[in-house]
Amino acid sequence: MFSFKRFTIRQDRTAMKVCTDACVLGAYADVADESGRPARILDIGTGTGLLALMAAQRNPVARIDAVEVDEAAFGQARENVANSPFADRVRVWLGRVQAFVPSLPATADRHGAEDGIAGEDALYHRILTNPPFYTNHLRSPDSAVNRALHTDELPFTELVDAVQTLLRPDGQWWVLLPPHETSVLTQLAATAGLHPFRQLHLRHNDGKPIFRMITGFAYTRQAVQTETLAVHESVGSAYTPVFRALLRDFYLIF
């Protein structure tokens, strides 16, 4: 169990546990609707429901859908949402995002996406993704772990197709990946007209190489704004002031 300031994540039935880089994605990604309308946000592969709940805390008017293909993780995410202060604004769906059809809140059925309705009003201002990225690595005997870590269920090509289908023309897609996989995804996204506009490079400390990148994509091509975040100080294990400021609204220790 991982307790945050405003919600708790139980994770005993999920393959992917709460991790630092996912928390940075949830705190860093732009989840505001610049038009002033209530934002619609989609979390692809929600796992425990972490990103959906962080988005709900940061945007008090957003309506959030969270899609999860693993049944055990789906059940746990739904319980985590139900036990949070944001249960009236977050819906958890069981199924593959490749087949997901968005629903407007007034007509949505919590138990499946097949009854949803399409149309620009049902598309998303923001999409958040912490996708699986292993391809040829050794497999775990646990099928849920394989589903969470390997790209079999959600190849990058199918992920890009899903985002292109579900994202509004003026929307943003935020992705967390290692550097090499970020480069691969960026090339695929360009074929769909999606281009990076902002990127955060994550390091364990200033002396370590980049281990994750958080990239914001949009349909407009523009200069990429690049930032670097070190999680820990160069000496010792203390968190850096920048990391503390970013996660202050979530971590109990801050």
Rank of each mutant, 00 (worst) to 15 (best):
S143G: 00
D88K: 15
E71L: 10
V90P: 12
L50E: 03
R78K: 14
H125W: 05
R198A: 14
Y219H: 14
T8G: 01
G236H: 03
T157D: 15
Q187N: 14
E79A: 13
A190V: 02
A230S: 15
G171L: 04
R78P: 10
D70P: 00
S234R: 15
G47I: 04
L42R: 10
V145A: 08
G216F: 11
W174S: 14
I214A: 09
P38C: 05
L200W: 06
D142F: 09
F250I: 02
Q199H: 05
D115A: 13
R110Q: 05
A77F: 02
T165E: 09
I117N: 15
F2C: 04
A245Q: 15
F86V: 06
L167I: 07
E158A: 14
L42N: 12
A56S: 02
F7D: 02
S234V: 12
H150P: 00
R91H: 11
F100K: 10
L252W: 12
F211T: 09
A73Y: 04
V90Y: 11
P60Q: 05
F7E: 00
D70H: 03
D70S: 03
G193C: 08
L159H: 00
L200K: 09
F133L: 00
A87R: 14
R40L: 02
G119W: 02
D170K: 03
N59P: 05
P169I: 02
T135N: 07
R63G: 10
L50G: 05
R78Y: 02
G36T: 11
L50D: 09
P38Q: 10
L167C: 06
P196D: 01
D109W: 13
V81Y: 01
